[in-house]
């Protein structure tokens, strides 16, 4: 008889953690994402690929309501996080973002100390002050940054290298203990060595979080992700297990993109 925890774990692998149901995003009249239905599961890394302007970033930002700040945006369809529609009127977007963390394209640490960066989110969410040092240490360890910064937690985060800054941003996001982690081209501003460290980190983090990443780098999608979705002109063209996706694409557009005929 498997334990209760194990059963819940099993359940999470077959029930999507987060899914979109015919999600459409418009900027004024312009349709950026058109009726996209996708499901994302626990312990899986999903990669969203496609050429610039295909709607993959817009789609990603709709998953934690980061698009709310844009004027004239309209969103139709549903985004369900553990079965709850995050666009329902009664839902507080601030709470949504506490459950769905985000890492951005350019490392964007606050101009504060390393410690303050990681502790910033939990502090705002009224996390008990005395437990902060432990939380900061755990988060930095999970982000594979602890060894490099443990002796200078009280120095400015801007003194770190680009790759370290991005790992700090990851530590900052996971300090909120989210269930989903969104990454918007997290390596596009980094050099190859820093990139490979982040990719290794993503492999470790997927044990704990559902990870959805946008990338313009097809090799990266192939290396890191379990499932891949291909976007083109706001449409979802193809979605499938990464191995299949890259070796036997089903759609001609996907094949053309993968073979470099456009993009």
């Amino acid at each position: 008889m498997p334990s209760r925890e194990a059963m819940i774990e099993q359940e999470l692998l077959v029930t999507p953690r987060i899914l979109t149901d015919r999600l459409t995003v418009k900027y004024g009249e312009k349709v950026a994402v058109k009726e996209v239905s996708l499901s994302f599961y626990q312990r899986k890394v999903a990669a969203l690929i496609g050429p610039s302007g295909c709607g993959k970033s817009t789609y990603l930002r709709s998953l934690n309501r980061m698009n709310d700040f844009i004027l004239n945006i309209s969103i139709e369809g549903k985004v369900l996080l553990d079965g709850q529609d995050i666009y329902e009127r009664k839902v507080d977007p601030v709470l949504v973002r506490r459950h769905i963390g985000m890492v951005f394209q350019k490392p964007n640490p606050f101009p504060k100390t390393i410690f303050e960066n990681v502790a910033w989110g939990p502090k705002r969410a009224k996390f008990p002050k005395k437990d902060l040092p432990q939380l900061v240490e755990d988060s930095l360890k999970q982000a594979a940054l602890w060894e490099e910064v443990k002796d200078r937690l009280n120095t400015s985060a801007l003194g770190l290298s680009g790759g370290q800054q991005q790992r700090l941003c990851i530590a900052r996001a996971i300090a909120m203990k989210p269930s989903v982690l969104l990454m918007d081209e997290p390596c596009s501003a980094l050099d190859p060595i820093a990139t490979s460290r982040i990719e290794d980190l993503i492999q470790e983090l997927k044990e704990k979080f559902t990870i959805i990443m946008v990338t313009h780098n097809m090799q990266q999608a192939a290396r890191v992700s379990d499932v891949t979705a291909f976007f083109l002109h706001g449409n979802l063209i193809e979605y499938g297990a990464t191995k299949e996706f890259f070796t036997r694409p089903q759609k001609i557009e996907t094949e053309n993109y993968l073979t470099g005929k456009f993009g």
Binding site: M66, F104, N108, W120, R124
Partner: peptide, 21 residues
Amino acid sequence: KYLREAAYGLGARKYQVATTV
């Protein structure tokens, strides 16, 4: 803008972003 995005992405309220970032 990227500093504000970082803050909002961590689930901060508007007044928290205004006063602490």
